[in-house]
């Protein structure tokens, strides 16, 4: 009896599998791809707990437990790495967050449709500049000896400022150039939220004699609040996920004090110094914190009744 139910169930599964056979065929290339590029490296994570020697390979290398991790936690630069990563991320998040909202509200007030389109088009332009070109422009305009801004300051009789080679100025140059590059692009989602506000609300408010500023404050801002909340929460979840590429390009001996973050340190210790196990351990440490942050943040988003990530 039980057996016949089991075979019946197996038969049903087989029927479903057979019905989906062509769809599996479609999935084959991408599944092979992620198995190779995303899942196979997971197996390599074990070298975080090993004394990795390339000749012996991933399996052959000797287990050393948590030695790589204790070496990291005990090192004098660990505090600095953590502090730089978190403070740069938070600075970026807090300074960068209001601008897209402000821009969306501003664009929304431009009543001439053609002008509005043109302004928006200009606003996304910097988003598509490569990071190398962006840092190149920063080097050119902010250079202490030949840059436009410092040349101007000299003309005005002011002191030059070493924007690109100063540890105290690095976070600001990093964050504000990022705002310049991405604020317009990040405004798109708020602009979409603004267009979904019921125009009748505005009409009613107008009849009641509300000024444009009052309507922004009482209608537009509440209208994009939920979008803002969910985006903010998601950004908090990525605080430890600071990108490598731009920091690495802006980093030099003079600003290393504030520009050395976890991502650049993983690169440096792994690919420059070939300390594979150690580098993997740092990466894993960072990755685990990321996942924990995301899970916390997601449950908060769920509790608030906003849409969640997963």
């Amino acid at each position: 009896m039980i057996r016949s139910i089991a075979t019946k169930k197996a038969g049903r599964v087989r029927k479903h599998l057979w019905a989906s056979r062509y769809l599996y065929l479609f999935l084959l290339p991408s599944i092979i791809y992620i198995l190779f590029f995303n899942y196979a490296p997971l197996y390599g994570i074990q070298i975080a707990f090993k004394y990795f020697q390339p000749i012996k390979g991933i399996i052959g290398s000797r287990w050393i437990g948590f030695d790589n991790f204790t070496r990291l936690f005990k090192s004098y630069y660990f505090g600095r790495l953590l502090r730089n990563t978190v403070s740069l991320s938070l600075y970026n998040l807090i300074a960068g967050f209001p601008f897209p909202i402000f821009l969306a509200l501003l664009f929304n007030e431009i009543k001439n449709e053609k002008l509005k389109k043109a302004v928006q088009t200009v606003s996304y332009l910097p988003h598509f500049i490569s990071i190398i070109v962006l840092v190149g422009i920063l080097n050119l305009l902010l250079s202490q000896s030949t840059g436009l801004l410092n040349t101007f300051r000299v003309k005005m009789g002011m002191q030059t400022i070493p924007f690109m080679v100063s540890a105290s100025l690095f976070p600001s140059v990093y964050v504000w150039s990022g705002i310049w590059q991405h604020a317009g692009w990040n405004a798109i989602i708020y602009i979409a939220a603004l267009t979904s506000i019921d125009p009748q609300l505005h009409e009613a408010a107008q009849i009641d004699g509300a000024s444009r500023l009052q309507r922004i404050w009482h209608i537009n801002l509440p209208g994009i609040r939920s979008t803002a909340v969910i985006l903010f929460i998601m950004n908090v979840g990525h605080v430890m996920n600071l990108g490598f590429e731009k920091v690495y390009l802006m980093q030099n001996d003079m600003n290393i004090e504030t520009s050395q973050v976890i991502a650049t340190f993983v690169y440096e210790s792994g690919l420059i110094k070939a300390d594979y196990g150690f580098s993997t351990a740092i990466g894993l440490f960072n990755n685990v914190i990321n996942v924990i942050l995301l899970v916390i943040v997601n449950s908060i988003a769920k509790k608030l009744g906003e849409t969640s990530l997963f």
Binding site: A19, L23, I31, N38, P41, G44, V266, G270, Y276, T280
Partner: peptide, 28 residues
Amino acid sequence: KLYGRNIIMGLFAFTMFFGGGLIPTYLI
């Protein structure tokens, strides 16, 4: 109609949150 859709979707989505990191990927 894709049988096992959620499992396969999970297989994809997982890679967005957790990866091997720089060195393991490099070695592979």
